[in-house]
Design a binder for these strands. Structure first.
Lengths: 198, 198
DNA sequence: GTCTATAATTTGATAGAC
DNA sequence: GTCTATCAAATTATAGAC
């Protein structure tokens, strides 16, 4: 069965934004890729391109948060989760021909000083990832403040390795990042166990 | 004395790209901001917007590499260099009203699958930063392979924290990154000293 | 909900006088 | 080297029939 029009529009837009960015993608391209007329796009997104961008950011943000949580649940230990996450990203990146795995960071950099609705949507998406990672790390026994720090670095490193790996057409940065973030988590857990809460 | 026209064009374009991205910036805007006619732009950059983008990436890439090297030279120790670098970036970011400190990552994400000249220019810029950081870390005694890994993570974290800090309008991610990268460097040096080369 | 037609503007780029 | 004028094409967005 054919997907609902609204979903087709969001999926097609997501992929085009990942390939060409926000300003590099036109509504006519979206219309063609989604097999929906421009009239349909404005029917579902009366706010036009900007509202469509917000919807893409929100759905992608949720998707990545769920992906992280599912990987974290399946990993044998807290530190291993991060190796697995970056390894998975590397596979996806290479298989897709080095298309950006995530449209959020690209849109954010393009419009953070131009469109407040898009900036806020991106900020909320990042915040939800940071919360999920912080929760994961505090559950592993790491004190809140340090867990938040590591969560920030994790999310930043994800976005950073996406640019770097994609630009250099190499998964090496992703693998390095997996190892390093994992090492930081292990270190934090070790420290916690050596100095238990009074 | 008024700066040379070519320089004015590059400087103005750099700032516009940092604020609005590559595709979000038009030649007419550049013309106005640089106080140069469109004819002048095409006189200095016969390759048009794409050639101008390559020039912006190359000059910015060099500038950041020199900045890193100067901070690394002045820092009291290898690990401190990274804290200082991220702290400096935080100050610049906040003072500029959270304009992107670096146009390279934004352009790269927008066009990595669309313009090969721009992708290659960005890749070269990142590679020069990675080389500089690797040199810095091997000089501190860290084995080459591990130094390269850390250099990858450093550059990725720089680009990643730029997106995150800018989107969230907070310097917290930059500070966390400075501490974490610094910790990784300290750890690597300690390990090296515990297990000296045979 | 979907379609076609179109408005109003802007885009990157070129030509040729000065 | 710089200027004005201009090109063809594409852009977001809207209107109104179906």
């Amino acid at each position: 069965m054919m997907a609902e029009t609204r979903d087709r529009i969001i999926v097609a837009t997501n992929e085009l934004f990942r390939r060409q960015g926000y300003n590099g993608t036109s509504l006519s391209q979206i219309s063609e890729a989604a097999n929906a007329t421009i009239g349909s796009i404005y029917h579902f997104f009366p706010g036009g391109k900007e509202a469509l961008g917000v919807a893409v950011i929100e759905t992608t943000g949720e998707m990545f948060r769920e992906l992280f949580e599912s990987i974290a649940n399946e990993a044998p230990g807290p530190a291993e989760a991060y190796v697995a996450f970056f390894a998975g990203a590397g596979t996806v990146l290479a298989e897709s021909g080095y298309i950006d795995p995530c449209p959020i960071g690209t849109i954010a950099r393009e419009v953070a000083n131009v469109s407040e609705p898009l900036r806020v949507a991106a900020s909320n998406a990042f915040a939800s990832w940071i919360s999920a990672a912080t929760r994961h790390l505090t559950n592993a026994g790491i004190p809140t403040e340090q867990a938040e720090q590591l969560a920030h670095v994790f999310v930043a490193t994800v976005e950073g390795t996406f640019v770097l790996s994609r630009t250099q057409r190499s998964t090496a940065p992703l693998e390095s990042a997996g190892r390093c973030v994992s090492r930081l988590v292990t270190l934090a857990i070790d420290e916690t166990q050596r100095t238990p809460t009074p």
